[in-house]
Amino acid sequence: MKTENNKGWFFVLPVLILVAFNALIPMMTVVNYSVQETFGDNVFFWQGLDWFEQILRSDRFHAALGRQFLFTFLILIIEIPLGIAIALAMPRKGFWVPVCLVTMALPMLIPWNVVGAMWNIFTLPDIGLLGYFFNHVLGIEYNMTQSPLAAWMTIVTMDVWHWTSLVVLLAYAGLVSIPDAYYQAAKIDGASNWSVFRYIQLPKMKNVLTIAILLRFMDSFNIYTEPFVLTGGGPGNSTTLLSIDLVKIALGQFDLGPAAAMSLIYFAITLLVSWLFYTLMTKDDLN
């Protein structure tokens, strides 16, 4: 006698429909554009993989992709260690715990375009608090509309300010789940603070850190709003990240075909790197 039935699938149906509307259908539209040429009026010409070839060979794409990787690399290399360090420094018990947590969470609650606008004003050389401080108090020339280095430092700092909290909160959640007995045992075993970090805290944080790195990678790799509002991709093309370039092509130049091809390549890279991260970081657990 078999008591199983298949009614359970009905529960999943709404999600399937949602995913279809949310991802599959827009995606198919993009695929559709990426292999055709249109001049409006709903007239399409078959292009095959021409757009893909063109994008992959273009120096402009390579430069934007390079900048994108540099940006992501910088923010990961800063945010992850910084986030862990702050989490380690936070109190585990007592009155200050909620205070710290709320303070930490605040930047994440601010909408992205507001963050961009805030930092834009903050860094204005003549009236912005930071800009004025650098130029007039410290006497260091700082103007991100003119200096690519200043622009880069600003977008990286802004992202670190905005998103390190996420890493902190995830790492903190991992830390507080470690039973006291582990710390006591380590003390008794004569372990140094570094050993405690290396052999207890880091292994126990590993799962949440995997999530943190993945989230920060995907988010930073696809970042658009904040740098766009802050620098608009300039000065010159110095902060034109992949997403900004994509919008320029799609909306600025209305080259829908190449833009579609580019977004698919973009998507494929994101997926591939995420998968790589995930596999590398979890490969120990498999055996």
């Binding site: 039973p179 007995a181 582990y182 006591q184 045992a185 003390k187 008794i188 004569g190 052999y199 207890i200 292994p203 126990k204």
Partner: peptide
């Protein structure tokens, strides 16, 4: 504890994973 030169085994096994 670390200055007393003692060893302790806890209720739940503590191992370095």
């Amino acid at each position: 504890p670390d200055k007393r030169n003692i060893a302790q085994v806890f209720q739940f096994p503590v191992i370095y994973d």
